[in-house]
Design a protein around this nucleic acid. Structure first.
Lengths: 139, 139
DNA sequence: CTGGCTTTGCAACCAAGTTGCAAAGGTTTT
DNA sequence: AAAACCTTTGCAACTTGGTTGCAAAGCCAG
């Protein structure tokens, strides 16, 4: 596992350090998206600043993308393989659960095409759905 | 005009004060959405805190709604008449222009229904489109 | 295992937003 | 039109989230 994570870092042109390894492991182990605060809580000893910088590096290298949320908080989730350095293909729907607070990438649900009036050029469409996730409806 | 604004405030159960009048005028005069910083710039003399509280009051009273944005900044726009105290009908698409930075409510473009996997309960769907707005493509 | 570049931790800083409270302002009553 | 009462404002202080500069430590080629 550790080894696999190290390979993944190298493949994306990053040197292998303790914080990057640990944080990437967290992402691989997590179902949903992670916020800076989650990572701070789940690790111990890494400086706030290191976590900010590590996340930024992951985004720059195309390993992770930020998720638009309804409550204006910043969350991060692993990219699928199609994403690469400086080029994110983030065309899936995101879901925020009002109950457990988790945020999920619904990778297989693509954002619908939105038809705009003449003169508008569409570059990106973000869809954020909120409600109750499947884990929480069961309980 | 001043009178009309005062009526609008009263209709929504707010006392008529200088800051509320001025800020509501700004919204009525503005094409797109306004951020706290915009209002601070366009007015002079009102305290930051007063602007925060006025915006919050407008949201509570159903006069204004917040707009989800791709860059995690908070913006406000006038509600249509269907919105009322504590009950927003915010089911239209929002557009952010990468060029001029303006944010618009596309009131007549409704958010498409998104089909989610079993077990998910949808409460709200937010669609934020970014690109170039019709004002900026003309130039 | 040495040297050079990268990353980390710390401290300080900045921006956005919130809270408590006294003073000022709006509204209602008489 | 003034008094009384409740609401709103401005100020100061604080909190939270995020950034920057820099010296020390860490990574990884040769």
């Amino acid at each position: 596992m550790q080894e696999k994570v190290a390979q993944l870092l190298k493949k994306n042109q990053m040197s292998v350090t303790a914080s990057r390894t640990k944080i990437l492991e967290l992402f691989l182990a997590s179902q949903g998206a992670l916020a800076h605060a989650d990572i701070e809580r789940l690790t111990n000893g890494f400086d706030r600043v290191t976590i900010y910088r590590t996340l930024q590096t992951f985004v720059d290298k195309g390993l992770v993308h930020t998720i638009p949320t309804a409550d204006n908080s910043v969350r991060y989730a692993l990219c699928k393989d199609e994403c690469s350095q400086g080029h994110h293909h983030d065309d899936h729907v995101h879901f925020m659960c009002d109950d457990c607070g988790n945020t999920y990438c619904l990778d297989h649900i693509h954002v619908p095409a939105v038809h705009l009036p003449q003169g508008f050029v569409v570059k990106q469409t973000d869809v954020v759905v909120s409600g109750i996730c499947s884990n929480c409806t069961l309980r």
